[in-house]
Amino acid sequence: MNTTTSNHILRGHSLPDEVAKRIRVSIDSGEIQPGKRLPTQHELANIYGVSRPVIREAISILKSDGLVISQQGRGQFVNPQGSSVFRLDPSLEDKEDLSHLFSFLMSVEVAATRQAAKSRNNDDLKSIRKHLDDLGSAIRKGQNGVDEDMQFHRAILHATHNGYFISFGEFLESRVRNLIRIAREKTARRNDMVKLVQQEHEAIFNAIEAQDVVEAEKAASQHLENAAKRLEIYQAVSTN
């Protein structure tokens, strides 16, 4: 494992997550082979320029993924079977990574919205409408409406009546939507942007209400494309 100071990590939102990501890259690239022992906590702390508690938490993350296993008295080893856990670790600072992320989201969320338009019942429609109205109310009160936004999209997932869409949507909620949450919080003061987002939500609802799968797909695609642009605006603001 390369021990040059270039591996040192700049202080950010989550050092353990970043360390875990770096170690994962070393494993994926073959720098640390499956079945091989990881460097000691002391060695890893020196490599990445962080404290040993940060290393311990990073190792815990890798263990929860099944990528690292403990052998009593011998240390931490790369699981020879590899990890069976699907992960998403997007970064707001990496434009290429965000582009790949939204391409992936497009394939999942557009399909889910299309399925919701096809499968929704009256109770689903009432739930989606309620959360959309709650979002509108929050916006009128000058709030960012982040939680209401999340509930709106969650109601759409439930309207698919497909357990896989629902379960995977919950995974995306925990791993990805926090990025959208951050961007929305940072740009919520822009009244023009808030109104545009709400118009996009209305278009999605109208298509689902009409059970128009083509328009639902179109509205969801437009919403995600615009969400990507809003994240770009956040990036520009945060780097200035």
Rank of each mutant, 00 (worst) to 15 (best):
G82I: 00
V213L: 11
A216F: 05
D124R: 09
G12V: 03
P39F: 07
H158L: 06
L196N: 11
R37F: 13
F205L: 09
A112W: 00
K141E: 10
T4I: 08
V214H: 07
D133P: 07
E200C: 09
D147N: 13
L10K: 10
R52N: 10
K21R: 13
Q151I: 06
L224G: 04
L179M: 02
R129T: 03
S107R: 06
V50D: 01
R24Y: 09
A203G: 12
N144W: 10
I9Q: 09
L38R: 06
N191V: 12
S70E: 14
Q71F: 14
V213G: 11
S119L: 14
G49R: 01
I139R: 12
L105I: 04
R22S: 09
K36H: 13
D28F: 04
N46C: 09
V78C: 00
N122C: 11
D147S: 14
T239R: 15
V213S: 06
N122T: 02
F165T: 01
I9E: 09
A216Q: 00
Q76N: 15
A112P: 08
K95M: 05
E185Q: 15
H100N: 13
R11G: 06
E225P: 09
L88N: 01
L135R: 10
E173S: 15
N162F: 07
Q222H: 14
I208C: 05
N206Y: 12
I47R: 07
S137I: 15
L105R: 04
S14Q: 06
L10M: 15
H223F: 04
R175P: 12
E170M: 11
E173G: 08
